[in-house]
Structures are given as structure tokens and as C-alpha cells.
Design a protein around this nucleic acid. Structure first.
Lengths: 336, 336
DNA sequence: TTGAAAGCGCTAACAG
DNA sequence: CTGTTAGCGCTTTCAA
């Protein structure tokens, strides 16, 4: 492996000068810098991150802690984070819990605290006090994306308002019998989003004096398949059907759409369906939904952290990210 | 930050002994080990990965290079890789090209070669000669997952055979007019899968002496939306419709399903549709498809690399991963 | 503008 | 079984 020493020898300067030149620091003459650069290029020199990390205390890497990788929202946020990191020359280290909470402590202590990262982005989780403490000792800037949590700064949409917009859209179409397809906190950890969305659905219904039937609330676990089964069962067994369904995610709304189609229930004629997300499939499926753009949320949060690493003052109250009702073919006036 | 020295002082031993005890090396008395462990625990000591990486030459991290994160196959493989790494105490570093090839060289040189990783898993790409060379100098074990490439060891299904199984399934149902919804190499880089699948479709049709119409081959870019539009246009403008469609991915097959539904073409009565993947939605949508399990592929490849890092001999010809035709409701006998 | 030298925090021989 | 001693390859004062 060619090291900084080789470049120094080749250029006839000290390693200190090579280091300065390569990092673009001031105080290197243009000539020297050029010679260093070309020598480095020629020799194929790439600095060792371990060595520079150890010496400088900066790893040039950012960590993302998430419950699971392969879920639309999570991987989309990751994509946005990665975009910014790539532009800034940072590496992305992914700490996934793999869908369960059991490894959480190990992941946290064995991986996150190893000083491998300069900053941490936490997705959709509430940190425990221990974790908070450990992080603050690390002095790495931290931020939470998705599923706001009290007392921690957070980037994301106003979930409560987004749900309200969805439900009130149904109400404005004359619906009064509105069911809910709920998401799950099946991760065995604090996962805020499903709770917030359910609460806002209930609050909105109450605010409009609309009836809540237990039968109309089914559990779809944020999944197409689960939601389809649950909605199909509900629609085919309930005494009186709802005329509309608010789904806590688009993937569950697709399941509801499918359930209705298999039961021969016309959408939106007999049943209106609204989701949240604006998933890639929502447009082609004609699903009315509330759009959020996770990629932008991830990019925004990553940028915030990146700027702090460059010395900017922490943004304590990041602006709420936008959401927007997108009307498509799956919602219409209440029957009769 | 508490360092190894603090633990040593607290225990009354040398840092070398602490290091040995903590890593579970032989040659430490049970009593000493216990005292070291409890002191480390008490002090909340976590080794610095930069320091141990520099000293030992092992980073305890694995890199994954991929074209894009947010795509079913890629994030599913990532999930499988992560599962194994987590179990082995390794960290996962993600190098994404973000959907384009433009940053490829920078990603490669500035990130991958920084000695931040002990091994590299490359997803669905052919490496250039330069890249190969650079990697071999690094001496990190490397493997490719998905989209086999000549001369490089590779973990994945036999794409040719999988396509053949899908197309021959249609043929066995009496179909002779079989169209193709193609995926894209829209990544601006060597991306093998779409090409392999197309070639196998063509070869299978030829082997059975079946006609190929240009009109029946449409480009869906591996996306629901694109595929839906392309298929809908094709079905509504072509002189003679195909009676079956082979789609190079499930997501495109969903688009085809949607297109048929919007045109009032019954599936499988008038049109049979088969995909490849067994995407999470395929079951609930009743899509006949060829199943592959990317998560297992990723886990398998990661394991291979992990074992080599522990000194095992390289597996030069990893076994082909299984695929399986799953018959569901979207395929049936050819009309008439 | 440049160089010398002292670490960064750990691991790995080599002794004892 | 344990300690001593060198580094790993950079960055960063401090002098020149």
C-alpha cells in the first residue's frame, strides 16, 4: 500500500506538507500543491481512514440507525441521506436492528459508540435515556427523522396534520362512516408513527362528532398482504360497512384496494380509500394520498448534521417538512 | 472518553492484557478476564475502531457497492447482508451510486479504497479493469451478488434458467404469442440483469420456434409506472395482441396487471402475465412469478466473505442460488 | 511556506 | 499468564 510517506518522498517534501496539500489547507504554495497532487495521483495514494481518523478525530462517516432497511420509507430516507453524504465525501454506515428490538443494545454499544462515525441520524425511534447519555458523551451531533419524539429535535412531516388532512378530505366528501387501517409497532421498540397516526385519526373523527366502530379499525401492520386480508375480512363480515377507509400507509391502502376489488366493491363508488406516503405505486394505482418525500427528509437531516460538523450552530428546531393531499381516483363522494 | 488505559489502571493490569481479555484471546486467567470485563463495563469503555483498525489492520466493517438503495432487490440484499454482519459484529458501509454512473470513480477511489472495509460486496455490476486492479491491491475479498459476470465469482440465481422457466410455463399453457416487458440498464453503468433476461427470453422463444414481434417488446425500466404506461400503450395500439406477457421483474408485472385491468382485458382469460422476483406484493396480487430470495443471496455472500476473513479458503465457485416457479392466478391456458 | 516531532488509542511481537 | 516496547499512518502543534 502506498502511504503518505511515499508521496512525500516522491515530491521531496515532508509528510506534513503532503497532508496539507491533499486536504486543501491554506499555507501551501501553488507549485508544491500541484506537485503533491500529481504525485499522489500517480502513485494511486488514498489516505487510510483509520489513520486519519485516529489522528484527527474525524472519521468522515455518518451513521444511520434504523429499525429495518427494506421498507419503503426507511430505504427512501437512506437514499436521501446517502445523496448528501456522497456529495460531501462522507461515508454512510448503516446500523439496522433487523426488524426486532433484541439486538438493540448490542448494536448501540458495540457499533455506534465505536467512534466510527462523526454524527448519527436515528430513524423513527425514541432513544432510551442510556442511549441519549452515551450519545451525548460521544459529542456527535444527532437527529431523529420520522415519527417526532418529545424533547428531541426531529425532521419529518407533521403526522398529526397529515392524517387530519386525509380524514377531513373524506369528511368533506360527505363520508361519516370512516374506518381505519392501522400500522404496527411490530418492531418491539419505540416506534412512534403508528401511534401518532392512530391518535390523530381518532381525534379528527371526534372533532367532527363522527362515530367510531371497533369493527372498522383493522390492523394492517404497514403491509400490503396483511392489510388486504384484514380489510377483506372486515368488509365481508361487518354488519354495516364503512363508506371510506383511512389507511395509515399507502402499502396498506393498496391492500385495501385489492380487497375491495376482490369483493367486487367499487372504488370510489361504494368505498373511498385514502393513504399516506405517495409511494411510487400510488400514482399508477390511482390512490388518493397525502404525499411526503422521505428522500428529502433524509437529505435535509443529513445536511443539518453535515453543517454542524463544519462548525455551524445546531439547528434546534428544524422546520416541519411539507405534506400535501394528492387527490386521485380512489376517493369520491359518499354514496347516496 | 474512557480509553483502554483507564480500564488497565482500574484493573491494575497492562493495556495489553486488557486488550486480550476484551477480545477473548487465550492466555488470560479467568480471574483477570473477569475483572477486566467488569471494569470495562463499569467505565463504559468501547474500543475506538480507528485505533484498533490502524493497529490491527482489520476494520470490522464490510462494504456494499450498489447502484441505488431504494429498489426492492437492492435493499432486500442489503437486509440479508446486514443480518449476517450484525451477527458477526461487523459494521455495514453502504456505497451507493445514487442511480447514476457519474460518481462511480469518486465513490470508488475516495471511499472504497480508504481501507475502511475488510471486504467488499458488489451488487449487480461489472467492475472495470481499473477497479479490479485497485481492489486486488487492497487484498480485500470481493464478491458479486446478482447479475452474473464472466470471470468474477458471483452469488445469485441462474437468470437465464429462471427466465426460461417463466417463458416455458407460458408455452406449456399453449401460449405462442408471448410479449416481453423489459427492464432497464438506466443506471449508466454495466448492469447485467436486464440484458441477461432479455437474451434468455429471446433464446427461449427461438428454441420453441415462436414468433417475435417488435411491437410485443416494451420497455418498463423495472418500474411499475413505466411498465403500466408502456404495456397499456402496446395493448391498445398493436394489431394483434399477445396472449401472454413475460415481465423481467414483478414490479413491471404489476404495471402490466394494472394496464390490463384498466383496459378491461381479463387476466388470465385473455392475457396471462408472469414476472420474476416474488416481490412482497406478488402473493397478494395473485401474480405467477419465479421466486428468488435476495435476502438469502445477500446473507450467503456476506457469510462467504466473513468466513474468508476468518481465514477460510475462498470459495471460487459459489453454488447457484435457487429459483422456483410460483403459479398463481395471473397465468392460465391460452385463449381458444 | 515548510519541516520535525509528538502523539491519536490500540494491537502485536517479544520477553519475562 | 502478563508486561514492555514498538509501531499502525496519519494530523497537528511548534519552530524554523
Amino acid at each position: 500500500m502506498t502511504g503518505i510517506e511515499d508521496v512525500a518522498v516522491a515530491t521531496g517534501v515532508s509528510t506534513a506538507t503532503v497532508s496539507r496539500a491533499l486536504r486543501g489547507l491554506a499555507g501551501v504554495s501553488a507549485g508544491t500543491r500541484a506537485r503533491v497532487l500529481s504525485a499522489a495521483q500517480e502513485l494511486g495514494y488514498v489516505p487510510s481512514s483509520a489513520a486519519s481518523g485516529l489522528a484527527s478525530g474525524r472519521t468522515m462517516a455518518m451513521g444511520v440507525l434504523l429499525p429495518l432497511i427494506e421498507r419503503w420509507y426507511f430505504s427512501a430516507v437512506l437514499e436521501g441521506v446517502d445523496r448528501q453524504l456522497r456529495a460531501a465525501g462522507y461515508d454512510l454506515i448503516v446500523f439496522s436492528l433487523g426488524g426486532t428490538g433484541v439486538n438493540r443494545e448490542r448494536v448501540f454499544h458495540r457499533s455506534i459508540l465505536r467512534k466510527r462515525i462523526d454524527a448519527l441520524l436515528v430513524m423513527c425511534m425514541e432513544l432510551t435515556e442510556d442511549e441519549h447519555l452515551a450519545l451525548s458523551e460521544l459529542e456527535s451531533p444527532t437527529i431523529v427523522v420520522g415519527g417526532s419524539v418529545q424533547g428531541v429535535r426531529h425532521v419529518g412531516i407533521d403526522d398529526g396534520a397529515a392524517v387530519r388532512d386525509a380524514v377531513e378530505h373524506l369528511i368533506s366528501l360527505g363520508h361519516t362512516r370512516i374506518g381505519h387501517v392501522r400500522g404496527g409497532g411490530a418492531f418491539g421498540l419505540y416506534f412512534e408513527v403508528p401511534r401518532i397516526r392512530e391518535e390523530s385519526y381518532l381525534a379528527t373523527m371526534a372533532a367532527h362528532g363522527l362515530p367510531l366502530w371497533d369493527d372498522w379499525s383493522v390492523f394492517g401492520d404497514f403491509r400490503f398482504g396483511e392489510a388486504k386480508i384484514a380489510v377483506k375480512r372486515m368488509l365481508s363480515t361487518v354488519d354495516e360497512r364503512p363508506t371510506a377507509l383511512f389507511c395509515s400507509s399507502d402499502e396498506m391502502a393498496f391492500g385495501a384496494l385489492m380487497a375491495a376489488s376482490e369483493l367486487g366493491i367499487s372504488v370510489p363508488g361504494e368505498l373511498s380509500i385514502v393513504g399516506i406516503d405517495d409511494h411510487e405505486f400510488a400514482g399508477p394505482m390511482g390512490l388518493t394520498t397525502v404525499r411526503q418525500v422521505p428522500e428529502e427528509q433524509g437529505a435535509f437531516a443529513a445536511d443539518l448534521l453535515l453543517r454542524e460538523l463544519e462548525g455551524a450552530l445546531p439547528v434546534l428546531n428544524p422546520p416541519t417538512q411539507p405534506h400535501e393531499l394528492i387527490q386521485r381516483a380512489s376517493t369520491g363522494p359518499a354514496p347516496r
